[in-house]
């Protein structure tokens, strides 16, 4: 579905992605992990076309995304912190997003209904709480029934009930055969929602396999300790490396 072929990206002198290669397949849900500054955000943004790699290419459904925007019809993106025009009403935001995909006529309104957004569609974005804004972001990501979902810290800021609603929606879509990419610092969420784990360290793929084999490899039964072990390994491997910086 998506293949990332040896992309490199430098921000100034800092090499964020080094000859990075990965592929994501349909029907799987990937947990993308790594310390701050490891390059996971850059990877996601590259796939979304927001960051342009210095070299290498990214293929979606076998076609390079360079200079293209059409493929994003099939991608639903939920940003970590959604910021929207202050004076726009929720209803207008939805119609704008719909306007950008005129050929899609059938909308997935599960989350809109679950979060009862219809009731507050006259409210302007500037007056919403952080949690409600996240609900809007989530509902927009799923609205067009996309084949790929990119979710950046999806449950952060949501109240527990809303978080559960969202998680069950994610599970539902995964079962429906969607490709789902999730970054999160909440490991329990990742364990619940994903079947593949990708650990990025200093711009390189450090681990990429199913969660089962991760547990096997680290000989841990639970997800969190397995990840913790993975992190220790990275530190051993690069005992001489610089202190990890915050992006």
């Amino acid at each position: 579905m998506i293949s990332v072929n040896s992309i490199s990206k430098k921000f100034g002198r800092q090499e964020v992605l080094k000859d990075f290669t990965l592929s994501f397949d349909k029907g799987n849900s990937y947990a993308i992990m790594g310390p701050n500054g490891s390059g996971k955000t850059t990877l996601i943004k590259s796939i979304l076309g927001m960051v342009l790699p210095d070299s290498g290419e990214i293929l979606v459904k076998g076609r390079s995304i360079k200079g293209k925007e059409d493929y994003r019809k099939d991608v639903g993106y939920m940003p970590q912190i959604g910021r929207y025009p202050q004076n726009m009403k929720i209803g207008q935001l939805f119609s704008m997003m719909k306007d950008m995909r005129p050929e899609i006529r059938e909308y997935d309104l599960d989350l809109v209904e679950a979060f009862e957004l219809e009731k507050i569609k006259e409210k302007t974005m500037g007056t919403l709480s952080g949690g409600t804004t996240q609900k809007v972001s989530a509902a927009l990501a799923f609205l067009f029934n996309p084949e790929v979902l990119v979710l950046d810290e999806p449950t952060a800021g949501l109240d527990p009930i809303a978080a559960e609603t969202l998680k069950s929606k994610i599970r539902k879509e995964r079962e429906a055969g969607k490709l789902i990419l999730i970054t999160s610092h909440i490991l329990s969420d990742l364990e619940e929602l994903t079947n593949q784990a990708i650990y990025i360290f200093e711009g390189e793929v450090f681990f990429n396999d199913s969660i089962e084999s991760l547990k096997e490899m680290t000989s841990e039964e639970k997800f969190s300790p397995a990840i913790a072990k993975l992190m220790q390994w990275t530190l051993k491997k690069k005992s001489t490396t610089k202190v990890l910086t915050h992006a």
Binding site: L48, G49, M50, E69, D70, Y71, R72, K73, V75, Y77, P79, G82, R83, Y84, M97, M100, R101, V150
Partner: peptide, 8 residues
Amino acid sequence: ELMLAQPV
């Protein structure tokens, strides 16, 4: 940024 993630 959000707009850039849309097909435009």
